[in-house]
């Protein structure tokens, strides 16, 4: 019974083994076979993500990162924070109750690269923005164990001493525009000024930030020391915008807010 059932399969394998026996004498046949076999899956899974429109939600109020926030993001990348913190709340009840509405594709639409992460040694940060005060964030980054004694996070006190470099910001925004972030010429030209302005609410550069990035943009002294722009300013500005670039998740998932 079993033998008759398996017979067609046995024939196929016999044929395959014989064909292969001939083919494996040609290195270029192997090369072509490997490229073909390995090419299919990636193409089928990746290409449609660029062409199917509802892959990423269409949202009107999604804004780009300000130069200061982007500089903070670059510091987050530099320090490898993604190794311990995810930025992707899954569609599971406990995650939504712990971290907030589940993440939507549009929320990381301007993230080059995405920082969804793969491990939560620390908590998810997708909606950490405005959850804690600037002061809490700064003190926590200086020494996490001052505020959370059991924390295993490294201390980042040196960020408070490191002046933020702003001269390369126009180049960075320009590169981001080349990969698809809709920065205007005006935003790129004023990138360095806007970075300074966002952390100096009393200065004359602040109004430009609000003009270009919207009235809701947080303009304040993030690191608690007015008068100098540090990497701490940038990183805290970035942490405080996480989850706040658009309100679409809060508006479409009211259940989670209860």
């Amino acid at each position: 019974m079993l033998k008759t059932l398996l017979k067609p399969f046995a024939r196929v394998f016999e044929f395959q083994a014989k064909t292969h026996y001939k083919m494996e004498r040609h290195s270029m046949a192997l090369t072509a076979g490997i490229i073909l076999a390995a090419g299919v899956g990636g193409f089928v899974e990746i290409a449609p993500l660029f062409t199917i429109d509802d892959t990423v939600e269409d949202v009107a109020d999604m804004r780009v990162y300000t130069p200061l926030e982007q500089a903070g993001r670059d510091i987050y990348i530099r320090e490898g924070c993604y190794a311990c913190h995810s930025q992707m709340i899954r569609t599971l009840r406990d995650e939504v109750e712990r971290y907030g509405p589940y993440s939507l594709a549009v929320e990381s639409k301007y993230d080059h690269p995405m920082l969804w992460g793969s491990k939560r040694t620390g908590p998810d940060l997708a909606r950490v923005g405005d959850k804690y005060s600037d002061d809490w964030q700064v003190r926590h980054l200086i020494n996490p164990r001052d505020l959370v004694p059991q924390s295993v996070m490294p201390q980042y006190a040196f960020l408070l001493e490191a002046p933020l470099r702003t001269d390369d910001l126009p180049g960075r925004l320009d590169a981001l525009r080349m990969v698809g972030v809709p920065y205007t010429d005006d935003m790129i030209a004023n990138a360095a000024n806007d970075a300074l302005g966002q952390a100096q609410p009393d200065g004359d550069r602040a109004s430009g930030v609000l003009d270009r990035y919207g009235e809701a943009t947080a303009v304040r002294v993030f690191d608690g020391q007015s008068g100098r722009l540090t990497e701490m300013d940038a990183l805290v500005a970035y942490l405080q915008i996480l989850g706040n670039l658009t309100d679409v998740a809060q508006n479409t998932q009211p259940m989670a807010e209860e």
Partner: peptide
């Protein structure tokens, strides 16, 4: 695939963003 912010600096930005980047990254 990425665009360098400057050819005199190390920083570059990935050609992909968000969900597409996530898929490419885990592929």
């Amino acid at each position: 695939l990425a665009v360098p912010a400057s050819f005199t600096g190390a920083k570059s930005y990935s050609a992909f963003a968000g969900v597409q980047d996530a898929m490419v990254q885990w592929w």
